[in-house]
């Protein structure tokens, strides 16, 4: 088969809903796009540990402390599953990691905002994880087998992430005046950055069409964003939280909630590195990576010595 025929056969497999596995033939561009998208997803899980980790030592009850620690730990696990899936495409995890620590690779811009009060932890669970679930539920049907499987596992584990956040936010929203203030303030700060999590509008999303054609994704950024807004409005109303958007209005015709203009300037600025926490997040991750080097080396050296001894003995 020549390349054109291979491409055609590949597209036919995709259209039939077949899963592509690591050793199958795939267009180089498909592979590249997957590596970019999957590693970005993995980096986001890892950097995402930092804003929430910020409150582990200050969580207001032992129950909430354990919930938060377990959740942050899950994020490490999810990052690991995703790197593991990306590695099936013939790349090394440490190279991917160094690409975002020292190079140009991106992670979700949502994690470049600070967590200022404990209510932020609740809102991250409700909105940020809620948005992630919308996205990951779609990705669980992705055409690339390892990526789909990683997302299935993540979705199973992540449902508690959103629930715990929403549950605690509901308590705060109906709690003492101080708690109510914290809850609303957190929603005000996180609402717009959360909507940006779905990526630029379809008109400005260069990768979308291709990813949909290859069924890596099955919905566009705007479609996902809309279904997230519809659900969040309902959930906000249920617990007496106000969404900070004066233009939010139910559209009888479409059956969806229309919302105001997303501050895209801010989105592009934060993506390019100028958000309130970009530099600190990278600094913290680089520090962990660099200070971990001697530990990783020691373990390898021990393994080498041990093998040498065993080889000698036999």
């Amino acid at each position: 088969m020549n390349t054109q025929e291979k491409l055609k056969a590949f597209q036919q497999r995709i259209d039939k809903g077949e899963k592509i596995e690591p050793k199958d033939w795939m267009p180089e561009r498909y592979r590249k796009q997957l590596i970019r998208m999957m590693s970005q997803h993995a980096h986001s899980e890892i950097v995402g540990m930092l804003p929430e980790g910020n409150w582990i030592t200050r969580a207001p009850s032992l129950k909430r402390k354990m919930v938060l620690l377990a959740k942050v730990q899950d994020e490490a696990g999810h990052g690991l599953y995703l790197y593991s899936a990306t590695e099936t495409l013939g790349v090394k995890r440490q190279n991917l990691v160094e690409d975002y620590l020292y190079g140009k690779a991106k992670y979700s811009s949502i994690f470049n905002y600070p967590t200022l009060s404990y209510a932020d932890i609740c809102v991250i669970g409700w909105l940020v994880d809620g948005a992630a679930i919308v996205n990951q539920t779609m990705l669980a049907k992705s055409s690339y087998g390892p990526y789909a499987r990683a997302n299935i596992r993540i979705c199973k584990e992540e449902s508690f992430h959103k629930k715990q956040g929403y549950e605690m936010l509901a308590k705060m929203a109906s709690g003492s005046p101080d708690q109510q203030k914290m809850a609303q303030d957190a929603v005000n700060r996180w609402w717009w950055p959360t909507l940006m999590m779905f990526g630029p509008p379809d008109t400005e999303s260069p990768n979308s069409a291709e990813l949909i054609k290859w069924r890596v994704k099955s919905k566009t950024n705007d479609e996902l964003r809309q279904s997230f807004v519809d659900r969040s409005v309902m959930e906000a109303q249920a617990i007496g939280i106000e969404i900070p958007d004066p233009d939010l209005k139910y559209n009888e015709e479409t059956g969806h909630w229309d919302f105001g203009e997303i501050p895209w300037d801010e989105f592009w600025r934060v993506i390019k590195g100028d958000g309130p926490m970009n530099r600190e997040r990278l600094k913290a991750r680089r520090k962990a990576y660099e200070e971990g080097a001697w530990v990783r080396e020691a373990a390898m050296e021990y393994a080498r010595k041990k093998k040498l001894k065993e080889d000698k003995a036999s």
Binding site: I46, M49, L50, G53, I56, T57, L62, K65, M66, L69, A70, V72, Q73, A76, G77, G79, L80, Y83, A284, K287, A288, E291, G292, A293, V295, R296
Partner: peptide, 24 residues
């Protein structure tokens, strides 16, 4: 628990959090 997000390798980050969770 102070190690969460700062471990020397991803796998060890998970391990330290597990021990912390057990203890708490």
């Amino acid at each position: 628990s102070e190690w969460a997000g700062h471990g020397p390798e991803l796998e060890e980050d998970l391990a330290l959090a597990n021990v912390a969770l057990d203890m708490i």
